[in-house]
Amino acid sequence: MSLSTLYAMTGVALFSLGFHALLVQRHLLRKVLALNVLGSATFLLLVGMARRGGDTPDPVPHAMVLTGIVVAVSATALALSLARRLKAAQGLVRLPEDMPE
């Protein structure tokens, strides 16, 4: 197994972890963290795959990941502000335990 495949597979594993947490966790802060893990896993996958062509890594995925990181950071900031707004309005940052049937 080459190094780039190892990175890619780690990305896939982290993606699954983040996806699971995003679905299961009720606390919104944890959901935001899960989204971050999920996003970072995608970046890891992209950067890992950028190397499979040859010796020099493909610069296009690298540039896209750089763009993606900045957008992910700003999306996280917006999500956290929304969570704080929710806390101010409702007093809690969790989804309700049971949805009405």
């Binding site: 890619a8 597979m9 896939v12 993606f15 699954s16 996806f19 996958l45 795959m49």
Partner: peptide
């Protein structure tokens, strides 16, 4: 887990 496996196979 199934979706992760599918993703790994796809990659």
């Amino acid at each position: 887990l199934a979706s992760g496996l599918g993703l790994a196979v796809a990659v």
